[in-house]
């Protein structure tokens, strides 16, 4: 089932160092990492970043398979980027391959390689964050980090709550989609053949029940939340208090160090 392969937002419970870091630290580290990723200009910088990620995956124990699986939905984007860079990067000197209108330069290969690496590292580290941080903690952390925006009267709590509920219901709705699809197929519905218009029309028997069910669920959930005394963010406490520990400061320092190291690597003219 293709639908079940989507791993977006899936959390692998665990007790590793990476799991135990404060979620805010992890979000900040992700930001550092991305900044460093966009600073990197040569093999040394990318090497440092790749090594860091490998180390982080090893520490997290989620396994490389899971991280690679996250890559599946963006596979085409990666290939597309690679091909574009390969073909359209102008280079100096003789092209390595010249065939018809296609000219591939050494620079093209280099850029394509680094671009692919950059996208893969970017996606991997983002997935690593969602794999090692429960969605609720993640939203808590976002809510906290975005606390500044609250002062601008933005409904930060409400947004965070919406996000966590959306994450909670993704698997449920995927399962439901599968079920309705099977039920309509049993009545002879055909989702796979025909032209675009046909296929769009064929989706009506799937989408109508899905929407109705989503609204019913939303309705019931709202009542259930009220019954559990939900009345907005005011006066709410949290079971898990976000508290920076020693390891968080060290991790943040290391994150900064990584940025500096990558920046320095640019000064060395390696490759």
């Amino acid at each position: 089932m293709a639908l079940k392969d989507i791993t977006l937002g899936q959390y692998f419970p665990g007790k590793t160092l990476l799991h135990r870091l404060d979620p805010r630290t992890k979000i900040l580290l992700l930001v550092f990492y991305i900044v460093a990723l966009f600073m990197a200009k040569n093999a040394l910088g990318y090497g440092l970043l790749a090594l860091t990620l490998v180390g982080a995956v090893l520490v997290s124990r989620v396994g490389f398979k899971a991280v690679l699986r996250g890559m599946k939905p963006v596979f085409f984007i990666v290939v597309f980027t690679a091909v574009l860079n390969l073909l359209y990067t102008p280079g100096q000197g003789e092209p390595l391959i010249a065939f018809w209108v296609i000219k591939i330069y050494w620079e093209g290969i280099r850029t394509a390689f680094f671009m692919v690496l950059r996208i893969m590292l970017l996606i991997s580290c983002t997935f690593l964050l969602t794999y090692t941080t429960s969605p609720i903690l993640l939203t808590d952390a976002l809510e906290d980090l975005l606390g500044l925006l609250k002062k601008l009267r933005l409904p930060v709590h409400e947004l965070a709550m919406m996000m966590s509920i959306a994450l909670r219901f993704i698997p449920t709705l995927i399962e439901e989609t599968d079920k309705i699809m099977s039920a309509q197929k049993a009545r002879g519905a055909d989702f796979e053949t025909g032209n675009l218009l046909h296929r769009a029309q064929a989706l009506i028997p799937l989408l109508v029940p899905l929407f109705i069910s989503a609204f019913r669920r939303a309705d019931e959930l709202a009542v259930a939340m009220e019954c559990r005394c939900y009345h907005g963010g005011e006066g709410r406490t949290r079971m898990r208090q976000l508290k920076y520990a020693g390891r968080d400061y060290i991790a943040l320092l290391l994150g900064l160090a990584l940025c500096v190291a990558v920046w320095c690597s640019n000064l060395l003219g390696v490759f």
């Binding site: 079920k179 309705i180 099977s182 039920a183 309509q184 197929k185 049993a186 002879g188 009506i204 028997p205 109508v208 029940p209 109705i212 069910s213």
Partner: peptide, 17 residues
């Protein structure tokens, strides 16, 4: 086979559209 063998799923009312 889909037509010769009719299948009514659990809670089939949720597939009405």
């Amino acid at each position: 086979a889909r037509f010769r063998v009719g299948l009514v799923f659990q809670y089939p009312e949720y597939q009405l559209f």
